Computed example of a mutant assay.
Amino acid sequence: MSAPDSHPGVLRGILQDDQILLAEGRTLPLAQARLLPAVSPTKIVCVGRNYAEHAKELGNAVPTEPLIFMKPPSSLNGHLGAVVYPKISQLVSFEGEVGIIIGRRARRIKQEEADAYIAGYTIVNDMTARDLQKKDGQWTRGKGFDTFCPVGPCWVPREEIDFQSLRVTTRVNGEVKQDAPVTDMIFSVGAILQFVTEFMTLEPGDLIATGTPPGVGPVQPGDVIQVEVPGLGILENSIVAE
């Protein structure tokens, strides 16, 4: 997070109710802080079409193995940060998801070992320029714009979360658009980490976005998106024109 003017620079803290606990017993009211992205990954690895109903709503086949793509770290955005609607797109969509934060270097791990490599969980909004994604035939440009990966508001240690109990709810201007349990995921967290680490080394702090449930749709400048996952909080972002 970033502190207000009276505390220049970047500080790390623990969110407790409406207070941020800082070093040496200091506290900072949450309302006075600007939260930066909850992670600083070397890479952002995403799983596409990991909910069968989401694949179907876009007219795509349900994958038989994890469908992996990446977003650049330059796309990171924080809680209450503005998502910039790019001039070259006419169809920008939201995608609420649960994010996995890697805790230690992972290479060729087995899915039953996955928990030992997870530091915690957060919320991700995988913003997508859907028209460019379809036009390009691959997803880098449509998914990779600056501000297109809001993460937060914080991250919660793995030991404090029952992952199987989580549920993703996304609202646009207060209207529920997505609402599904993570148990609807096609590929489990363990299966995802095993698949990814067969070809890629994951480093501490890397972010894995586990896929979005059905209900994705377009947004316009002025809209406010809230992705809520009980136990992880509410990630809120507004859309602004470029």
Rank of each mutant, 00 (worst) to 15 (best):
G13V: 10
V224P: 04
A209M: 06
G25Q: 10
I225N: 01
I20F: 09
P181Y: 13
Q164D: 15
F163H: 14
V189I: 15
I239A: 01
P4L: 12
D179I: 12
L58T: 05
I14S: 14
R107M: 11
Q111P: 07
V124R: 01
F145K: 00
G231E: 14
V229N: 07
W155A: 05
E97I: 02
I88P: 01
N60P: 04
A116L: 13
T122D: 03
R107A: 13
M1K: 05
T183Y: 07
Q133M: 08
Y51R: 07
N50S: 13
P86V: 00
S93Y: 09
V98D: 04
G217F: 02
W139T: 07
E113F: 09
L202F: 11
E113I: 12
I118Q: 08
V84P: 00
M127Y: 03
P8I: 13
V240H: 05
R34G: 12
K143C: 02
R12L: 14
V92T: 06
F163R: 10
G103C: 11
R104H: 11
G13P: 02
Q220R: 12
P230D: 13
D131I: 01
T128H: 01
P213S: 14
L193R: 09
P73V: 03
F69L: 08
M70R: 06
T147E: 02
V84A: 08
Y117H: 14
E24H: 12
I208V: 14
Q194Y: 05
T169F: 08
S40Y: 06
F163P: 05
I161K: 06
E228D: 13
Q133R: 03
T140M: 04
L11F: 13
A82S: 13
C154E: 06
Q16D: 15
I109T: 12
Y51T: 09
L58K: 02
F69G: 05
V45Y: 02
V39C: 05
V84R: 05
V62Q: 10
V219Y: 00
G48T: 10
N237V: 06
P72I: 03
S2K: 15
T128D: 02
V39Q: 02
G217P: 04
L58N: 01
R167S: 11
V229G: 06
L22T: 09
